[in-house]
Amino acid sequence: MNPKIRTFKLPELASGYAGDISSGQYIELLEFANLDAPVQADEVRLEECRFTSVAVESLRNARLMQCELEQIGAPSLNAAGTFFNDVRVAHSRFGSADFAEAELDGVVFENCKFGWLNLRRAKVRDVLFRNCQFEEIDFGGQIQRVSFIDSRTSVLNGIGAQLRDVDLQGLDFAQVEGLESLRGARISSLQLSLLAEDMAQHLGIRVAP
């Protein structure tokens, strides 16, 4: 089943400034662009906001609803415990993106690059990755109705994952860890052939030369 992505259109937004963002704030209908300092928005609630050409360091326990993030730079993003609902992230680069124990619902990542994407103990539902690149994806959470289109990763780590209706056909991967945890995923026949040797080793099957 494909992700259920809900469309939204942001209204006219007022200009936001770095001083508008502080821990625990409720922020709505603002656009933040080209800020001089990296954003630290722990425990902030953001509704109908846009971030453009901004560096982000921390969104720990933040809540983002109907927000757009474009050209975001984050060498090391702490997004543990965040809640993303109807969020679009485009043309952004993350050295590491730690979404441990986060909840992502109705999120689109498009034209993004990740070093390490950590979804351990996260709840991820209705998420689409389009034209994204990863060094490693850690799927160690509850992953439901997630799809990849024209994406690639060096390592796909499924250890501890609970997958349901996850479509991996549009994800090229070089290495898979935790094969037994990929139950509930859909792969192509080509991907199956690439995994055949690893699957045989996992099952204790010896393949004759």
Rank of each mutant, 00 (worst) to 15 (best):
63 R>E: 14
87 V>N: 04
60 R>A: 13
89 V>T: 14
93 R>E: 14
81 G>Y: 08
78 N>G: 10
99 F>P: 01
67 C>E: 03
91 H>S: 10
71 Q>F: 08
78 N>W: 12
76 S>I: 11
94 F>H: 09
62 A>P: 12
55 A>D: 12
50 R>T: 13
50 R>E: 12
94 F>R: 10
90 A>V: 08
98 D>R: 07
64 L>M: 09
49 C>Q: 00
91 H>T: 03
67 C>P: 10
77 L>F: 06
54 V>G: 08
67 C>L: 02
98 D>E: 06
88 R>P: 04
59 L>D: 11
66 Q>D: 15
74 A>G: 02
52 T>F: 13
90 A>W: 09
65 M>E: 04
89 V>R: 14
81 G>E: 02
49 C>I: 00
78 N>T: 14
93 R>Y: 09
83 F>S: 15
75 P>Q: 01
82 T>L: 06
84 F>G: 08
86 D>W: 08
52 T>G: 02
91 H>I: 09
67 C>W: 08
55 A>H: 12
53 S>D: 08
98 D>Y: 03
89 V>C: 15
89 V>W: 13
64 L>S: 05
58 S>K: 00
97 A>L: 00
95 G>Y: 06
87 V>S: 04
66 Q>V: 14
80 A>Q: 15
66 Q>W: 15
56 V>P: 01
68 E>T: 14
73 G>F: 01
99 F>I: 00
55 A>P: 05
96 S>I: 11
94 F>Q: 12
75 P>R: 09
55 A>M: 14
74 A>M: 03
73 G>L: 02
75 P>G: 03
59 L>Q: 07
63 R>H: 15
90 A>E: 10
79 A>W: 07
94 F>P: 12
79 A>L: 07
92 S>M: 03
61 N>P: 03
71 Q>I: 04
97 A>S: 12
61 N>D: 12
68 E>C: 06
83 F>A: 15
50 R>D: 07
99 F>T: 03
82 T>Q: 03
65 M>I: 01
54 V>L: 11
97 A>K: 03
98 D>G: 00
73 G>K: 06
86 D>E: 14
87 V>H: 05
80 A>Y: 06
65 M>S: 07
81 G>N: 03
90 A>G: 09
71 Q>N: 11
94 F>T: 06
91 H>G: 07
